[in-house]
Each structure stands twice: as structure tokens, then as C-alpha cells.
Design a protein around this nucleic acid. Sequence first.
DNA 1: CGTCGTCTTGACCAAAGTCAACGCACGTGG
DNA 2: CCACGTGCGTTGACTTTGGTCAAGACGACG
Lengths: 241, 241
Amino acid sequence: MVAPLIRKLERFGPLPDEGRRALEGLPLAAEPVVADRDLFHEGEHPRHCLLLLAGLACRYKTTEDGRRQILSFHLPGDLLNLTGLLLGQMDHGIGALTPVEVAPVPHATVLDWMENRPRLGLGRLLWRDAMLDAAIWREWVVNVGRRTARRRVAHLLCELALRLRAAGLARGDICDLPVTQSVLADATGLSEVHMSRTLQDLRGAGLIEFGGGTLVVRDWDGLKDAGGFDPRYLHQLAAAA
Amino acid sequence: MVAPLIRKLERFGPLPDEGRRALEGLPLAAEPVVADRDLFHEGEHPRHCLLLLAGLACRYKTTEDGRRQILSFHLPGDLLNLTGLLLGQMDHGIGALTPVEVAPVPHATVLDWMENRPRLGLGRLLWRDAMLDAAIWREWVVNVGRRTARRRVAHLLCELALRLRAAGLARGDICDLPVTQSVLADATGLSEVHMSRTLQDLRGAGLIEFGGGTLVVRDWDGLKDAGGFDPRYLHQLAAAA
DNA sequence: CGTCGTCTTGACCAAAGTCAACGCACGTGG
DNA sequence: CCACGTGCGTTGACTTTGGTCAAGACGACG
């Protein structure tokens, strides 16, 4: 069950055997969660992280006037909520976009890894993982702040295609992306209607197909181009591009 | 010289005496940097962090078509660039917005604090500081993604007023904010012209005064309201609101 | 005194939002 | 097996927000 997490951490650097064994020995109780349920609520003080085993999750915030902004997507293998561990209170929610399986990992366990057991080598790798999330947020600020709808959407799809591929959720250019257009709209700061038009635009240009929970990248170079996508911000993940 | 850094870290939790002594004993060579110069370039592989001693700095990215998006502002006491330490390559630039004083701190030193010397208690505090930056980015995604120009600008000014106050750069509601409107525009994803109009709008509503490098918050509640500002995302910094 | 950077203003334009209607697929219950 | 409802996507007409372009004011500074 921890294999995807281990694979991900090893992208950041070597994982000592002790660390690997610690992860593999972790008692994990998988819990199913139905779609659209919160894994963490904004404002709560969590006492555990969640290892995402299957399904798609997202972080999001809701504005004062009820609009939703999705902050990031999370794939199987992601250890959700180091943020909550370090900051205490959740400043955002984490929700299941699809039916999901998660396994709680107590904060105490993670803190022990990071602070008392340097031989595991987990501290730095987990920290890097958190910093990669931050790198993605920085790019999202640029995306919503300074790009047109077309570039925005193309850019997001590039990022997702790459991450889905790295997580083993794609066969070639065919990616599992079981989300509605309204989810993509909330991730890009666009309206649902305009998302629909923009996707049609990209489809019409022969760059993608999207529907039925699947994204097909028809023309990777064209899509990269349309999005002004430079994968360097994804750091170790960039290789695939 | 490290006093502002220590003050900031202590907001996140108790700093053991060993840690304090380690910081105070740090050999710091202050270097002046003129305004508009880069402290770190996008793409470089830095070998040190920079402790910001005086002046205002910002992180930014430039899009493929040459537009700038400012990602965050940094005030004296900030230890710039834990990101570079952990991710290796810079995915963004860090620039001096005003004349600035910085002191380099080798990566090796910081890594040593964090990984080999748990008694210092610095690891967790620095990590929290990095996570607070991430919390601010999340809010910025919401700000540029889901708020109108007026709310956006009001929100940014609320955040800055609070942070400037916490950093001792404000006397009451009068804050040192020596930046041009074009900088604020790049931080909010607006055009320079529209920033000018929006500031006039806020001025006209009696919420702020802004000019000559100074921000005066005339009506804090009104400004919070106009920005939909809820300081909880600033975590330990929220107290002042 | 002239120049440059910054801010302001006005006129116009383009991008994206809003509102409303409709089609379609899917699942449910009669 | 069909009727119905619901959620999702699409389309069109219209509005709003903010961007763009261009000109001018103002002040700091050489």
C-alpha cells in the first residue's frame, strides 16, 4: 500500500533501507470515503495525516461570497496534510473529488520520523515533497494571475497529464481524470461556461480530448505551447516532459 | 542582526536557548544590494540562504510573454530561500524591491541545524516558517483566482498591513510600504492602470491612503470588509487583527 | 530647466462572466 | 420497460470587468 508513496519519495533522493522498512511496517487501516466528502474541514485541528491510497482529492478554499477555488489536486501516494501537522489549524479544506481510499497516519508518527529518527532519511524527503507542493502553488498564482483562459487551461492540463503519468494513472497520452468541467473551472478561476468553451477551443485545435473521465493529449507539443508550459517548476517530476 | 528572525521564529513556538545561541553566534556579513537587483535568479542553483536584514524583497516569476507575477513580499527577518535549499534549482526569482541588506547563510549551516542538531529546536520552527509562506501562496491563488479587483487589492493591503505591523514596520495604522503601484499590480494580477483606479476607489471610500511609500489604513474594518479578509490563513500572525 | 518615472484620465476594446434555455446520458422508481 | 428527474455540458444573447492605448500632470532629480 505504501509503494506509491515510496516511489514518489525516491524521486527526491535516496531512501535509506531503514526508512523504507519504517514505511512498509506502518500499520495502515484503509478507509473508503465517498466522493464530495471532506477529508479535512477548513478550521479543524487534525491529529493525523492521511495517506491517499486510491482516488482523487483536492485542497480548496471557499471565499466569503461562496465561490470555490481549488488549490491543488492530489493523487494516490500523496501524504495529505503535512501542513496541518505543522500549522495546527487547517486554513483550507481537503475534499474527495472521486470515491477515495485513505489511511490515517498519526501526527506523532510523522513527527517522530522527522525529528527523532534521522537515520530513516524521511525528514528531508517529506520536506521536499511539501516544498514541491509549494512550487506548484507558486505556478498556480502565475497561472490564474497572468494567463488568459486558453493558456490557463492548457497549462493546467499539461501539469495534470505529467503528474498523472508520474503516478501511473495514464497509459501513454490517455490519462484518467475523472472530474467535471466545473472542477477544472474552480481550479483555474474560470466560470463553468467559459471552461466549456475553452475546452472546445482546445479540442477544436486538435490538442486534447476530454470527457467521460478521461483526458487524451492528442498533441503534446501543441498543448505545451498553448499553455506556455515549462515543467521546470515541477522539479524532479519534470523529467517526463 | 538576527533579532527579527528570532522574534519571528518565536511566534511559532518556544526557541530553546541552544537554538538562540546558535543564531546569535552566526557569523553574518551584511551586504547592501541596490533596488531592482536580483538576489536569486530563476534557474540558478543557490548554495546559501539570505537573511534579509533591511528593505523589501519579493519573489516573482516571469511568463513566457514577459509579464511579471509577484508571488510574495519579504520583510526584514525573513530567511530567504529554504526552497532553493531543498529543491536545488530556483523555479522563481527573488528580487530587491528597495535597497536591501542581506547576509548569506550557507546551506550547509541550515541543513546542519535541521538534521543533525535537534536540540537547537530550529528544524521545526524553520519548517513552520516555510509552511506559512505556503499558506500565503494558497490565499494568493484564491485572491487572484476568485476575487474582483477591488476585493483583491483590499485583501492584499490587509495582509501587508498586518505583516508590516508584525515586523515592526508600522506605527499604528501608518505602514512603510515603499513600492510603486505597478508592483502592487504585478502582485494582484492586474494592470497598472486598473490598479491606479482601484486604489482611487479605495481612497475615495475612505479606507486607505497610499502614496509616497506609505500606506495608511484609515478604516481597518472597512478595508477588511472590502477585501473579504479573514486573517486565519496567517496563523500565528493573525493575532494582531 | 528638462527629463524620467510614476500616476492619472479618457476613450475604446476584448475577455470572461452571467443568465437562460436546451440536449443528453444516466439512474431511479413506477 | 418506460417516464421522469437530475447532473453535466453546450449554446446564444447580453453584460460587466478589466485591459489597452494614448495623452497629460506632477514631482524628483540631475
